[in-house]
Each structure stands twice: as structure tokens, then as C-alpha cells.
């Protein structure tokens, strides 16, 4: 039973001036507990696709149904609630909150969810240990390297125990060992908590671990392979 159903999804940027067709009729469905890589050349529409899926942007045409809910039809505040409860984002540009420390960045969503302070501190420490930078808890993003910021971003996405993690190039700035570590953590969460992972990536190391690889080109799915 598919948990995500996408039909005839289209996204046209700048429809009035110079239209850019970023997504051109995508039909896809995802099962609960997938560990899937979206592979595509730069500009093929990976980020656009993830934004649609996370309810950050509205499709021009087509429908997205998650858990039986048409998220493309939700109001802005319903989308916010939906994201808060269901989705963990890892943005391509990390997008950590500069005024918060690493630990505070991780705790931020949990705070919004109403998790107790003690619980938050415990979980953020666990996650920082898992991504290998427990010593950076009280450091602000400005003083972290790109790779360290990336790890915090991943930890933040996992903190709220979302149903889905949408990750845009989560390993782009990591060395092999860190990439390996991070993937192990995510695989573990995927198995244990049945969290669904969808990555946009160029990284062969990620593709290798994925159980399903979807290839985009020019806003279209050109290949969809399963490996078990």
C-alpha cells in the first residue's frame, strides 16, 4: 500500500515571463519505509520535487497524496502543521538557524512540538553523538565547517522522529567516513523506526546503499530501479 501517491505532477516557474518547466508530469508512488535515492543531473528538478513533497511549494498541475491527505490542497497553516508532525528536511544549503547553537538548532522543532526540556536535551545529545560532533553542542553554525553544519542539519531533521525525511544532497560536503557513519545512522532509523527516506543525490556512496533508485531528467522520471 503506497503511502505517497504522486500523479501528473507539474511545476512551471515564472509562468508569466520566461516559463521554466522544472517538473514535467511525474507519476510516482512510495511505500512506507523506503530508502530511496533520486538521482539526476543538476537542474533536473530534484530540489523542486522535494519542495513539493514537503508542502513548501505548490505544484502547477497534478496531485500529491500523503497518508490519504491531498497536501497540495492544504492551507498554509495546515501545511505548517503537517510539516511539523511528519517531515524532516535536510536542505541543500543546510539552512541552520544562525542565532541558535548546534544543540538549539536540533531542539528547535521538538520545542515547537512541545517536547519537555529534559527530553529535548537528551535527544539532541544522542543525535550529536550519532553524527560524531558531541563537542560542538554549544557552537553556533558560523563557527562550524560545512561538513559539521551538514551533520547538524541531518541531526535536526531526525530530531522530531518524522515519518519522512526529505534530504537534498545530505552528503555533499562529507568525507567517506562521515558519509558512511551518517548513512548507517539513517539506515538504522529506517529499519528501527520505519522512517521513510528520500534523498536527492549525486553521491555514488548514497546510491549504493539505496534500495530504490529513481532517475530524473528534464523534469521527468526516466528510470526507476529496485534493489533488495
Amino acid at each position: 500500500m503506497a503511502i505517497i501517491k504522486i500523479k501528473k505532477l507539474e511545476k512551471i516557474y515564472n509562468p508569466k515571463r520566461i516559463p521554466v518547466k522544472a517538473l514535467n508530469g511525474i507519476d510516482l508512488s512510495f511505500e512506507e519505509g523506503e530508502f530511496t535515492a533520486l538521482v539526476a543531473p543538476s537542474g533536473a528538478g530534484k530540489t523542486t520535487f522535494l519542495n513539493m513533497l514537503g508542502g513548501l511549494d505548490e505544484p502547477t498541475n497534478g496531485t500529491i497524496e500523503i497518508n490519504g491527505v491531498r497536501i497540495d490542497n492544504l492551507s498554509a497553516s495546515e501545511k505548517t502543521k503537517f510539516r511539523l508532525r511528519n517531515i524532516g528536511f535536510v536542505f541543500q544549503a543546510y539552512n541552520l538557524i544562525p542565532v541558535l547553537t548546534a544543540a538549539e538548532n536540533i531542539e528547535f522543532i521538538m520545542e515547537l512540538q512541545g517536547v519537555s526540556k529534559k527530553e529535548r536535551a537528551k535527544r539532541s545529545m544522542e543525535l550529536l553523538e550519532a553524527v560524531g560532533i558531541p563537542d560542538k553542542a554549544n557552537i553556533r553554525p558560523m563557527q562550524l565547517s560545512g561538513g559539521q553544519q551538514q551533520r547538524v542539519a541531518v541531526a535536526r531533521a531526525l530530531a522530531s522522529k518524522p515519518k519522512f525525511v526529505l534530504a537534498d544532497e545530505p552528503t555533499a560536503n562529507l568525507d567517506s567516513k562521515s558519509t558512511e557513519n551518517l548513512l548507517d545512522i539513517m539506515l538504522q532509523l529506517n529499519k528501527k523506526e520505519n522512517i521513510t527516506f528520500i534523498f536527492a543525490t549525486h553521491d555514488a556512496r548514497v546510491v549504493k546503499k539505496a534500495r530504490r533508485v529513481i532517475t530524473f531528467e528534464d523534469g521527468k522520471v526516466i528510470k526507476d530501479e529496485n534493489f533488495e
Binding site: L56, L84, I97
Partner: peptide, 13 residues
């Protein structure tokens, strides 16, 4: 940008 990120990851208005 920061506020946008907050909202993107679930901060209510």
C-alpha cells in the same frame, strides 16, 4: 531566510 527556514521546518506563524 532564517525565519523562512524556521517556518519550513514547522514553526507556526
Amino acid at each position: 531566510k532564517e525565519i523562512g527556514v524556521r517556518k519550513a521546518i514547522g514553526a507556526t506563524p
